[in-house]
Amino acid sequence: MLTPSIREMEFVRSDGGTLASYTPGAHVKFALPAGERSYSLIDFEPVSTDSAITSYRFAVQLEAQSTGGSRHMHELAPGDEVLALPPGNDFPLVAAKPALLIAGGIGITPMISMATALRQSGTGFRFHYTGRTGAVMAYRDELEKAFGDHLALHFDDQPEKALNIGSMSASVSAEEHVYVCGPKGMIDAVKSAMEAAGVSADRIHFELFTSAAEQAGDTAFEVEVHATGEVFEIPPGKTIIDVLEAGGVDLIHDCLRGDCGICKTDVIEGLPDHRDVVLSDAEKAEGKVMQICVSRAKSARLVLDL
């Protein structure tokens, strides 16, 4: 246990073989009883594609309202086996470009490997890590030892050390890329501030660590599949993808958190209730596209170009 709610785990192949290589920011998708869950790989030493990888390192936060994923990971004992896919990466580093890394809470995990790679390559970077209090922030000592003056720690309970997104956005250089991982509210705030400061969208990269939570007042709505005319009811607690796939509709998606953009779908009729971190404020206001993995509807029915 790194903190009262964050557990570090190391996995090896059950047959003793080597594991697939990966790039900074990568994750591994686990097939758990509650469904697929993805966790970022952690490296304080550079990963070489030329050397054999014998273990993967993760840190998993037990969510207060866990639907079974983080709880299952916290209940694993040494020797237990789980099924996992090879690493994937929806949050890659742009090579040879200076970086501003912003991590909130458990969103620190992919940033560690990114900072490690940037340090190894000699690429300039700034690293900001924020949490509610110092006690809930994993890896503080290791991070300070590994990254020294590159790292700044921020604590919500210490106003003088709280993360100042406004001043940070104003300091981004013309070549610098921004990477942010953490809660949705923080990602939205960073994106809005960076866009307002003139940082182009192609230099703002993000990863959300949890799915969009069910909100009080969520009600059922209908989705019409334009190609077939089929109509599905989406109840509270279920996503559009959940219901349509159960009904035999073939969909393309990946993260199921609203941050990879793969499931972006055109809206023919209706008003989306956007809950992703992918679309820009302008796209959300226009209402012509939506991320069907997390977003819902403000109208009684959506007609989607599926």
Rank of each mutant, 00 (worst) to 15 (best):
I106N: 07
G229S: 06
A117Y: 09
R301F: 12
P24G: 02
F155G: 08
K145S: 14
M290R: 00
M114A: 03
H205Q: 04
E222C: 10
L151E: 03
T133D: 02
A201V: 15
E222L: 11
A189K: 00
S171G: 03
R71I: 13
S171W: 01
A115F: 05
M1S: 15
I252F: 14
L256W: 09
V136R: 09
G198R: 06
K284W: 08
A117D: 10
S280T: 02
G25Q: 05
I234D: 02
A52G: 10
C263Q: 00
E230M: 10
D157S: 08
M194T: 03
H27C: 11
R57W: 10
S40L: 12
I252Y: 13
S299D: 07
L76Y: 00
H177P: 08
D15E: 03
G104S: 06
H205E: 05
I108M: 11
V47N: 10
V136W: 06
E283C: 04
L244K: 04
P4C: 05
V278F: 02
R37C: 13
A227V: 09
A117C: 09
S192N: 14
E245Q: 02
A115R: 05
K184E: 15
A162Q: 08
T3Q: 00
L163R: 02
A52W: 11
M114G: 01
T116Y: 06
A95D: 14
F232P: 04
E81I: 15
E245M: 07
S51Q: 15
C293N: 07
I234F: 01
A52L: 14
P24S: 04
L76P: 05
I204S: 09
M290Q: 03
A135L: 11
V199W: 02
E36K: 13
A96D: 15
G229C: 05
G131Y: 03
G148V: 09
R203W: 04
S21C: 11
D80M: 05
T210G: 15
D276H: 01
G104R: 06
V294L: 01
G198V: 02
I252K: 14
R126V: 05
